[in-house]
Design a protein around this nucleic acid. Structure first.
Lengths: 347, 347
DNA sequence: TTGTAGGCGTTATCAC
DNA sequence: GTGATAACGCCTACAA
């Protein structure tokens, strides 16, 4: 009972435009028009066609349509990981906009590797995606070249200072990070630690680190490199790294993380160890994921409009595809410092 | 500088198989073979072709290939929402398996609506996805009919007792829920509340409710309907609903939720109100998302292997597509009660 | 191992 | 407003 689905070459012939056309007594092209541009066909004709379509259960073949029209209405998106609510909020924002305009989302995860990213890009180009979304501005040389040569619209979501292949939506990671350091310094914390995600091929994290360093310098904080660590993006690594940090520097007063998940993991670990937050130890994150506002205490963090970022990225792509002149190819979405209970009151 | 990308019909002619074939001095079909089945071409020929491919920067057109071969290597997946780590863990599991076998993921969100699901299904069929993944067994009649008639392999992830369109991967929601009730009763809780997600078109949630009811009856617990509520899937709704519950039934002793996110929201709200968990109030969830194990206290919950579920679903689909005889079309992945600190010790 | 011929199911183009 | 014709770029089928 499971043998022949789609395996055998011969399958009961599918209904095609010609079948619909025959039943409606028109030419195939008219059926095509009736479905794509209803107004370009006389109402009576259109109705006959629609009846034929539904009575035959005709499902247009977009593969053929795409080949012929040279557009797939497919947008390829590459996110670093599926395990992050940042990526999925973003993706949700994209998907919503795309669907409302008749586009579909082709999604792949690169596992933070530019090599895997390259192979996904090749895949998407091969499928002739009408547009491509990438996270960050760091790519393999070959990937960048292929994208440029293909002339496919590309949006990257990244730091504003990156050099975009085509269009760019984002904010300044360094400035955001620096702004948080200003807040932490204002709270009176002098020994502020920093957890970043792995920085390999990730210029966004490096921007956040740069902002941290600038803050340390500007506000005269403790510059000990032992206060810094690179942490994998999961709760277990975050809790472990907090333990290690407190062993190296038991006198650390606060921790700023280049991602909310790390901060949340650290916060839980503080609670487990009986460290009071923010009295004994301050914690701050980056991203403002949903959860951040619900923690007890709430997590002080850098707020970013992830879903809107996704929506905006999709809109840029679609406007470009619709031939609308795109105002600027770099869009600054800004950021905001959200102060909650995980850091002390400003003095 | 942004005018003509993909808009004009005429674009500088793309490199095609024929160009590669000419340069390598073979017939187009040989190029095709060299790329799809390298072993079917003589090594020397193959090398010439590969050199031609890379020197021309040839990117095969899979749209044309799909039309011709009648397979797209695309799997369409519909998840209810992008805002849930359950869905995204699952999706990540699928994506990984798919990619390793040369397939790509077409992803859409239905917003828990069977109507939106139907329109996505139509879209995916139109794009001739080789297989389709759906959440749950509740669909519109038209959607089910289209799927059956299309003869596309379908996997649903759902309760085992549902009636699958084709293949099914899952576990018994009712049994899992009942098992948790046994645990809660064992802890000595008598007045156990239940928060479910909206039950409309969601037979999984209804299964969980059924398990709860069976537990209430079997273990002689308080059957007051005021202990039950339907809650939207976000933290804000969960905290609000906990407040309302405690107003209706200030004597409630524990809360079981049909989703971890609800339980986590409730747990935070307990902390905010100074209710001690589990001494004053027990909380249990369903799903065992990553976060559940890191909460303070840890969340007692029903563990489900989401990522593996996704991987398994993908494998079923791909095995079917590869013509491998699929053992059974219903796969029970089981569940497990994970006891953590949010419920009292069993007496 | 390699090649020839033809078609996959649409839509662009140009004519009426 | 509607239609005839010719692609779109590859792959299946069959042949050599």
């Amino acid at each position: 009972m499971s043998g022949d689905r789609r395996n055998s070459t011969r399958q009961t012939k599918r209904i095609g435009v010609r079948d619909v056309a025959r039943l409606a007594a028109v030419a195939p092209i008219t059926v095509s028009r009736a479905l794509s541009f209803p107004d370009s066909v006389a109402p009576a004709t259109r109705q006959r066609i629609m009846e034929a379509v539904s009575s035959l259960g005709y499902i247009p073949n977009r593969v053929a349509g795409s080949l012929s029209s040279n557009q797939t209405r497919l947008i390829g998106a590459i996110i670093p990981t599926f395990q992050s609510s940042v990526a999925t909020e973003f993706t949700g924002g994209m998907a919503t906009v795309l669907r409302s305009r008749g586009y579909q989302l082709l999604l792949g995860g690169s596992n933070f590797s530019v090599e895997e990213e390259e192979s996904l890009i090749l895949e998407f180009l091969s499928r002739r995606a009408d547009g491509i979304y990438l996270t960050g501005t760091t790519h393999t040389e070959r990937a960048s070249r292929m994208l440029r040569e293909s002339r496919v619209p590309v949006v990257e979501v990244a730091s504003l200072d990156g050099e975009p292949i085509d269009m760019l939506v984002g904010f300044s990671n360094a400035d955001a990070s620096f702004a948080m350091m200003r807040h932490l310094a204002g709270c009176g914390y002098r020994k502020v630690a920093f957890f970043s995600l792995p920085t390999k091929d990730n210029e966004r994290q490096r921007g956040r680190i740069a902002g941290y360093r600038r803050g340390v310098e500007t506000f005269g904080l403790d510059p000990d490199p032992a206060l810094m660590a690179e942490v994998h993006m999961d709760l277990a690594s975050a809790t472990r790294s907090l333990g290690e940090l407190l062993e190296r520097r038991p006198d650390a007063e606060a921790l700023f993380c280049g991602g909310d998940l790390l901060a949340i993991g650290a916060l839980f670990e503080c609670q487990r160890r009986g460290l009071r937050v923010p009295e004994d130890f301050g914690v701050a994150g980056f991203d403002d994921i949903d959860l951040a506002g619900f923690m007890q205490p709430g997590l002080t963090t850098v707020h970013l409009p992830h879903q809107m970022l996704g929506a905006r990225a999709a809109e840029l792509l679609l406007d470009r595809l619709a031939g609308k002149p795109v105002a600027g190819s770099v869009v600054d979405m800004g950021f905001e410092i959200v102060v909650r209970g995980s850091t002390r009151k400003v003095r």
